[in-house]
Write a protein that binds this DNA or RNA. Structure first.
Length: 450
RNA sequence: GGCUAAGUGGCAGAGUGGUCAUGCAGCGGCCUGCAAAGCCGUCAACGCCGGUUCGAUUCCGACCUUAGCCUCCA
């Protein structure tokens, strides 16, 4: 199976050819652990999760690395504000992040390196860049000298002149050029710091990824795929390319893979707009299936506008699929090969909306064909939708025994012809948030999420 | 202001040089005590202006609009 992915470096869909024929390596920028993960973090983890599932199917070994940034000024700020240590903050949000990802059915990456565990390799990487003449030391900082690297701007398609003209920030006096970026900076007594040849300090934002990648795959190896949100193209990934290319003679990475951001009210989430949607909140009222489907409803490179109707539509579709799946009587393992169609669709640049269309068509056929139904279940499973799981997410306040007794009471009223009473009970249940349906010989209920 | 993308039916959202996306909503019907669900059918779109072409929503160019980046943001 040939996999095609869109490569940001040349803005073209390309056939994926890994460096080694039977294995693939992928690195994705993971979370900075300073607050609760939001729906955007979920998309940034889910999109590579789908690619990981696809790569696993195709290659014998897949090394999927997703880092954890546990050194950052935002973490220090959070620690200061909450009167906690940096370690307490990062540990608690690492746990929340991992729990949220597990709840979403996102597979664990092969490796999840932390910045704090990689200080020696970060320092070694900076030393190599200095030794090769692409960085300079100034006022206890180490800075990358962008003027020395001719290809700078290749990924984001900007020239150095454009960037300098457009720069809004004041030029720090220790920089030769406003575009030079920090590899190492000094720490004061309130900030986490490590001993280095340039004094007590901490790494700049971009160097951690380069150091960890090279530490894992080897200095002279090329990474197959590097991913992240498309808001990281500049400056983060541009800077990574510069560092990675100047610390070793090998090409840094072959395929750049970026997902679009999640918008709320057509705007990027931000604390100042007050439109940040947290996963903890979403997971209270929505199943993992619903959230996954909603996040996959747009192509991964497009912006995804998040709204209530996104959730409602996904929930409706999932309900339809799961109620069909309940009627499956066979052994699903008989049909493991039935997912080759969905694999084919995903192989064309992860076209998840096309997969959803395909699932809808299977659902139509599934009413009369057990094979289509098995295919639906297996195909959904490939993108991490478990149609056989119990999908009901109920608020804790709902009393199931009360619901059952009201339904019994209504059934008696119906069979004795007292439809007025029956309808009153139905309305009462609806006001409790319970929707009932009279199926053949039986009344079923569900939480009314609309 | 510069850079990078994107504009498709009421909404969401794929795709294609010439015949169907799909889902939700709507409309008509079947079913139902009535609903709901389900089923059958159905309406409806390619930002604007030029160009290439027998034919453009699709390719090319200008314009307009929107979003992201240029602020250590996924």
């Amino acid at each position: 199976m040939t996999i095609k992915i869109f490569n940001t470096i040349n803005r073209k869909k390309e056939i994926f050819r890994p460096v080694k024929s039977n294995s693939a390596s992928m690195y994705v920028c993971g979370p900075t652990v300073y607050s609760h993960p939001h729906i955007g973090n979920a998309r940034a983890a889910l999109v590579p999760d789908i690619l990981f599932r696809l790569l696993r199917r195709t290659y014998q070994t897949v090394t999927y690395i997703r880092n954890i940034t546990d050194v950052d000024d935002k973490i220090s700020d959070a620690a200061f504000k909450q009167n906690k240590t940096v370690y307490e903050i990062s540990e608690s949000f690492i746990k929340i992040y991992q729990d949220n990802m597990t709840s979403l059915g996102i597979l664990e990456p092969t490796l999840q390196p932390r910045v704090t565990d990689n200080m020696p390799s970060i320092i070694t990487t900076i030393k190599k860049i200095l030794k090769n003449g692409f960085a300079y030391v100034s006022d206890n900082h180490v800075l990358f000298d962008t003027s020395k690297y001719k290809e700078y701007g290749k990924l984001s398609k900007r020239t150095l002149d454009e960037m300098i003209d457009g720069a809004r920030i004041e030029i720090a006096d220790y920089k030769k050029s406003p575009r030079d970026f920090i590899l190492w900076k000094p720490s004061n007594e309130n900030q986490p710091g490590w001993e280095s040849p340039w004094g007590m300090g901490r790494p700049g934002w971009h160097i951690e990824c380069t150091a960890m990648i090279k530490n894992i795959i080897g200095d002279d190896c090329t990474l197959d795929i590097h991913g992240g949100g498309n808001d990281l193209i500049f400056p983060h990934h541009e800077n990574e390319i510069a560092q990675g290319s100047c610390m070793s003679s090998s090409k840094y990475c072959n395929y750049w893979f970026h997902n679009g951001i999640v918008l709320v009210n057509k705007k990027k989430m931000s604390k100042s707009l007050g439109n940040v949607i947290l996963l903890d909140d979403l997971l209270k009222n929505n199943s993992s299936n619903t959230l996954r489907l909603a996040l996959l409803s747009a192509h991964y490179r497009q912006p995804l506008n998040w709204s209530d109707s996104t959730l409602i539509e996904s929930n409706n579709l999932i309900k339809k699929f799961t109620s069909l799946a309940k009627s499956y009587t066979g052994d699903i393992s008989d049909y493991d090969d039935l997912d080759h169609e969905v694999v084919g669709i995903l192989s064309d640049d992860l076209n998840t909306p096309e997969v959803i269309k395909y699932l809808s068509e299977l659902a139509k056929g599934a009413k009369t064909s057990q094979r289509d139904l098995a295919c639906l279940i297996v195909s959904a499973k490939f993108i991490g939708l478990d149609l056989l799981a119990n999908n009901k997410v109920l608020p804790k306040s709902i009393d199931e025994d009360l619901i059952k007794s009201l339904i019994d009471e209504r059934s008696k009223a119906r069979s004795s012809g007292d439809f007025k009473k029956a309808d009153e009970i139905r309305d009462k249940l609806l006001s409790m948030g319970i929707l009932i349906k009279d199926l053949e010989g039986e009344t079923v209920w569900d939480y009314n999420s609309d």
